[in-house]
Design a binder for these strands. Structure first.
Length: 402
RNA sequence: GGGCGUGUGGCUGAGCAGCAAAGGCAACAGACUGUAAAUCUGUCGGGGUAACCCUUCGUAGGUGCAAGUCCUACCGCGCCCA
């Protein structure tokens, strides 16, 4: 039942893994054939899962496929407190309703990666709510303020004079106690979680449990090269439409292609090595990136959608043809000032924006084979049925005359 | 509780009493291409054909022809002292 194949174990321990504490011990546990309890804490702040958050999920899947028990801790209580470790600023406190709604959607999305039915799902309010000041005080005694404030992201904030709330101090305690409550053998998390993950070990020792081993995955860069994070808006979301997802991945910087293959897919490592060699040998990165985009779309939307997304992308961006689905704008007005038209069709938000775009050469009308670039923002266009208005490379509207 | 600071457009960060407000990031458009990559260029509060008008610099008042810029109060945040 438990897979103890050394190669499999090696992959679990190394693929997309930045650091393992304590690696030898974990390796031993994996080889023992014992069912391990592998914990992942889920932060319910954002209802949208992105590729960065899918990385630990994939790692969990590796464990799950090897026969281990996955324990998902839903931070309904911690979410209300707010984690501080991957943020440069304070987290907002969430109200309970939001947490519940977010979690439902989370489990749904996580189900695309994990076999949820086989997972243990626990809400940490169950045990955290009951802790009193006495107990918390004792727990807190395991940590020093010095440790806490010497964390890079905290000290940075302190140096720059940004507020650090006392409640943030409590967070590692809570996450750590989660590990105690579920008797975790292993915990997965991003490198930014190191402090919290280690807190788990410390508290487990305090409660006379064997400390969990820790497996940390690197953080992945988002579309703009900064760390992928919902608050930056540079994410590829699991719920993105296939076309959108495909396009977003195509807009990734070339240098992240291999990293994404390793972290966000489960394409075999040998294959990825091949791609890497090809890239180094001067193969067009675009072609490899297409494979990446297709693979990722396939994981979340299935193969058929992945193929469709590729076709669509090629059509619109390579061959500069029209996309398949174009939003329709119905009107009975035949003569339209271009600026008004752009605003009314919601292609732009204001007339000033329309003006800028037209002057910048970003607006085109297409009627069959006839394309006309509009350069005067005061121009009055004569609309015809199924005329297409194109703004930039990606925005289209089809006119329907009533 | 006291003292001293600080609060600017999506973010960051300049700002002298006469600015729709420097710079950077992000975003958008154009050229190029291998793509929504890279690079280069341009734009980046709203309205008007235009002259021009309106809205914005934590909140509320005040001084002054004129206020992001000075004064007062309040709120948030920081530092120091208690």
């Amino acid at each position: 039942m438990i897979n103890t194949d050394p190669n499999k174990i090696e992959e679990i321990l190394t693929r997309g893994v930045e650091e393992v504490i304590d690696k030898q011990n974990l390796e031993k546990k994996l080889k023992s054939g014992k069912v391990l309890r592998v914990k992942l804490g889920i932060d319910p702040t954002s209802p949208n899962l992105h590729l960065g958050r899918a990385i630990p999920l994939l790692k969990l899947r590796d464990f799950q496929l090897a026969g281990h028990k996955i324990v998902l801790i839903i931070g309904d209580f911690t979410g209300v407190i707010g984690d501080t470790s991957d943020k440069d600023s304070e987290r907002p406190m969430l109200d309970e309703k939001t947490v519940k709604a977010n979690m439902k959607s989370y489990v749904n999305q996580a189900g695309k990666v994990l076999d949820i039915k086989k997972c243990e799902i626990k809400y940490n309010s169950r045990w955290l709510k009951k802790l009193g000041f006495g107990e918390i005080g004792k727990q807190a005694d395991n940590f020093s303020l010095n440790e806490f404030i010497s964390r890079e992201n905290i000290s940075k904030r302190m140096d720059s004079g940004t507020r650090v709330s006392l409640r943030e101090l409590l967070y590692p305690l809570m996450q750590g106690y989660d590990s105690v409550a579920v008797k975790a053998d292993v915990e997965i998390g991003g490198t930014d979680q190191k402090f919290n993950l280690l807190a788990g070990r410390q508290l487990q020792r305090y409660y006379k449990q064997e400390p969990q081993d820790i497996l940390m995955n690197p953080l992945v860069e988002g579309l703009d090269g900064r760390k992928m994070s919902s608050s930056w808006g540079n994410t590829v979301n699991l719920l993105d439409s296939p076309t959108n997802m495909f396009g977003k991945i195509m807009s990734l910087k070339d240098e992240y292609i291999i990293k994404y293959f390793v972290l966000a897919t489960r394409i075999g490592m040998e294959k990825i090595k091949e791609y890497e060699t090809e890239l180094k040998a001067g193969k067009n990165p675009r072609d490899i990136k297409v494979l990446l985009a297709k693979e990722i779309v396939k994981m979340y939307h299935g193969e058929k959608e992945a193929n469709k997304a590729e076709e669509e992308f090629n059509k619109v961006h390579r061959d500069k043809e029209l996309p398949t689905d174009i939003p329709v704008f119905e009107t009975d007005k035949k003569n339209y000032f271009i600026a008004d038209l752009l605003v009314d069709t919601k292609l732009v938000l204001s007339k000033n924006e329309a003006k800028r775009l037209v002057e910048g050469g970003g607006v085109e009308t297409i009627l069959g084979e006839k394309k006309e670039r509009i350069t005067d923002w005061r121009k009055e266009v004569v609309l015809e049925d199924s005329m297409i208005i194109k703004v930039g490379n990606r925005k289209f509207v089809k006119i329907k005359l009533k």
